[in-house]
Design a protein around this nucleic acid. Structure first.
Lengths: 270, 270
DNA sequence: TCAGCTCGAAATGAATGCAAACCTGTGGGA
DNA sequence: TCCCACAGGTTTGCATTCATTTCGAGCTGA
């Protein structure tokens, strides 16, 4: 298939796919930072085929459309995306370097299986990154940006009072994202987004429904976070954020132990 | 060239190269963590050609054998490594995702030019990662590992007294690496190594010869670091390490302002 | 002299080809 | 029945080829 032929064709490939692959591939992750994993801001606005495939494949895997440990079917994905193996394989190398898949020599790519131990490690790194973001945010954040976080905080509190889990989650994630944004550090944002993706792929569950105590605790921690940020107490905020992530990790681990159902979709985030 | 032909041939390609490329490509970076950028520990012991090329090319760029902003000559590197363009281009995509190079659509790869602002950002991320490593190290470090760091610290102090810059640097780097190792967090180690490479590529200079004050200050900070680590005071150590990196960044910036000679090799690290 | 244009060489992006490695199912022997 | 060899198709890794774009030398005309 030549480039001209591909461009004149429709977006979707024609062939049917096995059930596992037939899930829709969304165009963008809604709830995360808009930052691309690496700096491609100025000149790389033209999406070369490679970038397009890379983004779509990353989403496909992060969203859990392939089971952990499952083979990544090169051929099928080529047909799915309507491309040849070359750009797809380039994307696979990049995803492997991001830790989303493993490349076994001569035996293809497999979706990385994330063990309990590694989830703990990833949580700790997220904690460190958020701690850093909080520290930097205290140095740089504008009054307006702080006010927006404060608004989100109160909105989140409202959801908490009404026991609206979904709204609570959305505000919670928005707050953490705003803090990272307020740090105004490109490499930090990119690294944060990358680790968030890896962790999200693990489908760890910190479902607050099953853990009402944790919900209240998390809400109190967020009070502390807002307070430290208001006082621009970087070092203190750094500590609180790390502890916050630690507790989140613990809640996730408890939940996992209580309901060890692998492959079951679960709600994220405290 | 077929695979059999390449394997029966010698390691070095035959052709002459322009002066800029004729520098030797070392096999490994001596002073950094042994960790590979991503988890390939168990099964990927067989180095597929791609991995080999990726590692060598990364070293080639990190070591500064290509000027910032310079074109990455695909053709020449292919001849140099004795491979075709496919695996080389795969490696370039990965390096781009690591932030070492920029890929301009239809105009090839260029060595990323790191501006002053980005160096500051990278330093801050390094500070956050070291802060995290220190915090985790306080939780996990063994007496033996602590004793080794203490030994390195005293050895470093000896170098400081004798004004032996080279020995001081080596111990300094070893201490920071040991702290990261003591954190026992694979993703953290990998991320740390990656950022260390990016920063090293910038060839920032924090030459202590030109800044004797900073040398003494750094030594005092290291006293604090050791003290906090001995007391397993994670939060405190975290703060000290971040400040330590901040001061290191400041010294580097001062030095850069005092002697703005781009392309001049300079001594790293405090 | 110099700005603008044309055309050809070279480089890039992607597709295709090909040898080697792997997986699978089949059959022979213990 | 169970274990192992092995032949076939399938997949992978890399080389090669092809289409497209960019870059630059040389020409034209003012």
């Amino acid at each position: 298939m030549t480039r001209a032929e591909r461009e004149s064709e429709g977006a979707d490939g024609p062939g049917p796919l096995p059930a596992q692959l037939s899930a829709e591939i969304p165009a963008r992750i809604p709830g995360t930072l808009p930052a691309e994993p690496q700096a491609k801001s100025r000149e790389n606005l033209v999406h070369s085929l490679h970038d397009e495939v890379l983004a779509r494949l990353r989403e496909f895997i992060v969203e859990g459309n392939l089971a952990p440990g499952a083979r990544v079917p090169e051929r099928l994905l080529c047909e799915r995306f309507g491309i040849s193996r070359t750009p797809l394989r380039e994307a696979l190398k990049v995803l492997a370097s991001e830790g989303l898949i493993d490349l076994l020599p001569n035996r293809g790519a497999r979706v990385r299986r994330i063990g309990e131990g590694e989830i703990i490690e990833l949580f700790d790194v997220m904690g460190g990154l958020e701690a850093l973001a909080g520290r930097l945010a205290c140095e740089r954040i504008t009054e307006a940006a702080y006010a927006e976080i404060e608004r989100l905080h109160h909105e989140m509190y409202g959801h908490y009072l009404r026991r609206d889990l979904h709204g609570y989650f959305a505000c919670n994630q928005a707050i953490h994202d705003r803090i990272v944004q307020a740090a105004e550090n490109g490499p930090l944002s990119a690294t944060y987004a990358s680790f968030a993706g890896r962790l999200r792929r693990a489908r760890y569950s910190a479902n607050l429904d099953a853990n009402r105590d944790r919900w209240g605790e998390a809400m109190r921690e967020h009070e502390e976070i807002l307070d430290a940020l208001r006082r621009r107490a970087g070092s203190e905020l750094s500590d609180i954020l790390f502890r916050h992530l630690r507790n989140k990790r613990r809640a996730a681990a408890d939940r996992e132990a209580a309901a060890p159902v692998p492959g079951e979709p679960a709600v994220d985030s405290v």
